[in-house]
Design a protein around this nucleic acid. Sequence first.
DNA 1: CGAGCCCTTGAGCCTTCTCAAGAGCGGTGG
DNA 2: CCACCGCTCTTGAGAAGGCTCAAGGGCTCG
Lengths: 242, 242
Amino acid sequence: MPLRPLPAVQKEDAGRRTAERLRLLAEQLQPQRRMVHTGDVIYQAGERFGNLYILNSGFFKIVNLSADGREQVVGLKFRGDWLGFDGIAGQRYVCDAVAMDTGEVWVVPYESLLAACAAHPALLQMLHAAMSREIAHDRDSLMSVCTLPADARVADFLRYWAESLADRGMRTDEITLRMTRAEIGNYLGMTLESVSRALSRLARDKVIGFATKGRREVQIPDVGALSAFVQRCLAPAPAMLQ
Amino acid sequence: MPLRPLPAVQKEDAGRRTAERLRLLAEQLQPQRRMVHTGDVIYQAGERFGNLYILNSGFFKIVNLSADGREQVVGLKFRGDWLGFDGIAGQRYVCDAVAMDTGEVWVVPYESLLAACAAHPALLQMLHAAMSREIAHDRDSLMSVCTLPADARVADFLRYWAESLADRGMRTDEITLRMTRAEIGNYLGMTLESVSRALSRLARDKVIGFATKGRREVQIPDVGALSAFVQRCLAPAPAMLQ
DNA sequence: CGAGCCCTTGAGCCTTCTCAAGAGCGGTGG
DNA sequence: CCACCGCTCTTGAGAAGGCTCAAGGGCTCG
């Protein structure tokens, strides 16, 4: 039985790849840069599509709205991620993109991006890779929500957040959740109380720790322990012997 | 309160659009055509990426596999849909694509597609629109699973299936589910028993009907009734007065 | 120092899952 | 032709995970 994701070899160059990609994009697209602050909305469902956005720093959440008023966080975006793909097909965005922190986004008019892609095939490759990654990740999200019990979902969420940071060369031993319990619960399909209980259990099991002040900072001494915790949730049989 | 999706005006030309798109693709890409039968696997997780596929007829399911052996249906594909986007980023497919019926897929080598796109910008537009649609739909799936109770999820699933057929100009008053209760449950994050109970309830409420023989065929006299049922599930207050 | 959030924790309830039994349908072989 | 087998589906009863409701504590900011 295969038991570990093992996300390929990339230790010291974590983040360098992202930085390199961003450098290339900046160079070839010369995008307009725009500072954002917590709560800023970069685009909104229903708004006419025109730009894609590249996140140079900060964090974003993507919020989906249904016709009947349900509202759900369906994605999280980190440095190097693209935003706005959902708008291409219908020429209107179908989600809101909301900043969860101070940061900088690059504005890339879709039409001029296409023009640039025609000249630089590597650009097109990056665009497609970004869309592909988003599709693959959305599916993983769906699988987590569908197949994991609540506690494991929270653990997997933290693992995902930590790994996203690690991929970009950022610290993961102490991370700052940019979301309230309610937002996390919304993203994971559970209530804020359940999120809180799950975090308490993770802390009790020493899989995570809380900083001295505030429960927004989470210490993750070992990301692998989070994966192990998920596995433990999936194998309910305590396996008394052997 | 906005209460109805109202998916734009497209009655008699439903399906014509799809057919037109396919005609264009066939013409410009001259793809290799490949017949498939129920259970055939077009590509598999881990396999080296090279081709995208366009579904000309039949139905596919996309199955995601986790490192620890969980398996989940994360997508359904109908005529005109593209398959294989998940493989672009990592140069390996990360899902299985499995035929649920006899059908025909067109094989489109990614590299030659890019070459064709360079010559025909409309092609690139179609490619991006397909990827964009997939991203938007994956998010809707996540929202359904996260925000709807079991019964509503099943109703919404039927609505989605019926609308997918309608968009392609196919009948929706009587549809044949290509999936077992177990597969539907897996896709929706619930057990097969819950799916069965939900379908029974939908039938009892006359929102759907079952054909004389076999419970695989579902009669949907009015797709709108499915949406209404979803709304009813969301508004638990019986609203006794007024 | 008080107001407004956000978070935690408990108790009871409800939806959904689990386990189990049985029916319907289709295929196979005696 | 019919008996049998395997698979799928339905339905019930009981268990349980997660939700709802409620109370209380901690931060932050004015």
